[in-house]
Design a protein around this nucleic acid. Sequence first.
DNA 1: GAAAATATCAAACATTTGTTTAAATAAAAG
DNA 2: CTTTTATTTAAACAAATGTTTGATATTTTC
Lengths: 209, 209
Amino acid sequence: MIITEKHAHILEKAEELFATNGYEGTTVRDIANAAEVNLAMISYYFGSKEKLIEALFKIRMEGTKLKIEAVVNNENITPFQKLEILVDNYIGRVFERQSFYKVMLTEQMLNKNSVILKFMRQYKMSYITLIDEVIKEGHNLNQFKKEIDTMLLLCSMTGSVMQAIIGKDNYREFNLLNKMKENDFEELLKERLSKHIKSLFKVILGYEQ
Amino acid sequence: MIITEKHAHILEKAEELFATNGYEGTTVRDIANAAEVNLAMISYYFGSKEKLIEALFKIRMEGTKLKIEAVVNNENITPFQKLEILVDNYIGRVFERQSFYKVMLTEQMLNKNSVILKFMRQYKMSYITLIDEVIKEGHNLNQFKKEIDTMLLLCSMTGSVMQAIIGKDNYREFNLLNKMKENDFEELLKERLSKHIKSLFKVILGYEQ
DNA sequence: GAAAATATCAAACATTTGTTTAAATAAAAG
DNA sequence: CTTTTATTTAAACAAATGTTTGATATTTTC
């Protein structure tokens, strides 16, 4: 399937609606209105509502895998530096595409669509095997001193970021940051998350230089 | 509103359906079938589908707050022990009520219902202020050495647990635990999560006895 | 045990849903 | 320019949705 600009535009509007109202809570009419196209165009372009969300997952997940792998194939940096870059990449991607990651989170729980499940499985597995490699490398170089549960560490990373995003407003309020501009606040939160998660990795892996 | 056994039974079936299919993805007919009552009984008992999910949040959140506070009012244990108990309580509650916590997670993202928002806000705030107190106590006693971002630590706790639950099957597969019985596996995962999160707290707070 | 209140039921209700149709318009190809 | 192909449209479609109705059964109250 060829994705034109029109496709991409509709997908972006649909993505926003799915993030705020859920897949089932979003009607094809909502999408058509938001994208300012005729109702029938959704079927015309994508075939069905279900194929539309499949297309969304396809387009969003395509680039991601390559981006992740590029980091690890860089030979000139230490394992811990690689992990730091992976963390920052992850945070950057989630903040850049908050809507999509919210959709992903709900679909992880609810979805039974096999196409979407395949995409998510692929994404997760590439991430975990990659990090596992880097961690093994660090152990071999005797830079990481502790044996760890990679998957739980990954849960902490993704979970911390997602919870922070979902509870953004609570965080803002609790830390008395209401006056800040939205953009500045997001940068602050990203920065704090980055530090927080890197230190998680550090202490859990028993990193020593 | 008085909650009878019949109410509770319908709510439990609805809760399961909401967890697997989402609120919008669950029809009143689905609930009636699952609870083995006539379709009209849902309206008769709860007034509407929306009031049903509000009742679910009400009943589930009522007990929680008291349980949390009981821990902290125990004077005979150290701050870090209190945190350990809070962590184990949290894990225990989530595993015991996986369906509800899944519903909560999606509603956190999607819901605009003011009644539900109020419940969740209350829940979150009571948790955070409580933990904040314990952490201050630990600092005053010079047992915690590091200044921390309480809310991010909380994000890591809740996020780790939720991600682990959502990705249970992945965890099982990746760690080659497929032969294990579901119950045994859950106990194992709880144990590992408990250790993992407690060590997070320990290192991030700079705990020294 | 009759009267009143509560619970259950199948059927019907008006909306909303995703999708399709067939006609009209615009763009591309020859 | 004309024909063919691709796009856009309003209207229609059947199925599904949350809710209500009015009749019937069951339980409670006195």
